[in-house]
Simulated scan of single mutants.
Amino acid sequence: MALPSVPSRREAETITNALGWVTLGLAAVELAAPGALARSVGLKQNHQFLKGLGVREVGSRAGLFGWRRARPLVIWARVAGDALDLAALAPALRRSNPRRGVAVAAFAAVAGVTLLDVLCARALSKDRR
């Protein structure tokens, strides 16, 4: 299986913009209904932590709207945020979780977004050098 290639700058900009809108939607859910979101994947705690992740998502989207020159840094910060999202989901992957299937799907989706963020960050960082 071949690893995905680094996108062109134009592709990275398009992907980054689309992911920014998707994560803004996720941020709205994290801020408005953190308890329901946590329960949907089988987590009983971390409600306030999820609100913090929502605030981070809003901040990263604001960074993508502005600071064109800093965009690669903002995307690398998103990668770090993706790692926090994966860490928040990890407890839901336990075998005893009745919502484990949903948690696995959510974890896979976040991992996919993380890969896209890494590839886009590499593409945009490469052009800055």
Rank of each mutant, 00 (worst) to 15 (best):
M1D: 13
M1F: 14
L3R: 15
P4K: 03
S5G: 14
S5R: 14
S5Q: 14
V6L: 07
V6E: 06
V6M: 07
V6N: 10
P7Y: 04
S8K: 02
R9F: 12
E11D: 11
E11Y: 04
A12H: 08
E13K: 07
E13C: 11
E13T: 08
T14W: 09
T14Q: 14
I15R: 11
T16A: 09
N17K: 09
N17G: 13
A18T: 09
L19S: 06
L19D: 08
G20W: 02
W21A: 06
T23A: 07
L24M: 10
L24I: 00
L24D: 04
G25L: 05
L26T: 10
L26E: 10
L26I: 15
A27N: 01
A28E: 01
V29M: 06
V29Q: 04
A32F: 03
A33M: 02
A38K: 02
V41S: 02
V41D: 00
L43W: 00
K44W: 06
Q45Y: 13
Q48A: 10
Q48S: 15
Q48L: 14
F49P: 09
L53D: 00
L53P: 05
L53Q: 05
V55S: 05
E57H: 06
V58F: 05
S60N: 13
R61E: 03
A62S: 08
A62H: 00
G63T: 04
G63Q: 08
G63I: 05
L64D: 13
L64Q: 15
F65A: 15
G66A: 15
R69M: 09
A70G: 08
A70S: 12
P72S: 00
P72L: 00
L73T: 04
W76H: 03
V79T: 10
A80E: 02
A83G: 12
A83M: 13
L84A: 15
L84P: 08
A87T: 05
A90D: 08
A90K: 05
A90L: 14
A90R: 14
P91M: 06
P91G: 07
A92E: 00
R95K: 13
S96V: 11
N97H: 06
N97C: 10
R99Y: 02
R100V: 12
G101Y: 03
V102F: 09
A103N: 01
A106Q: 03
F107R: 02
A108C: 14
A109N: 11
V110Y: 03
V110L: 03
A111S: 13
T114H: 13
L115K: 04
V118L: 11
V118S: 07
V118E: 08
V118T: 11
L119M: 01
L119D: 00
C120E: 00
C120K: 04
R122M: 12
A123L: 10
A123G: 07
L124M: 07
L124T: 03
K126C: 04
D127M: 12
R129F: 12
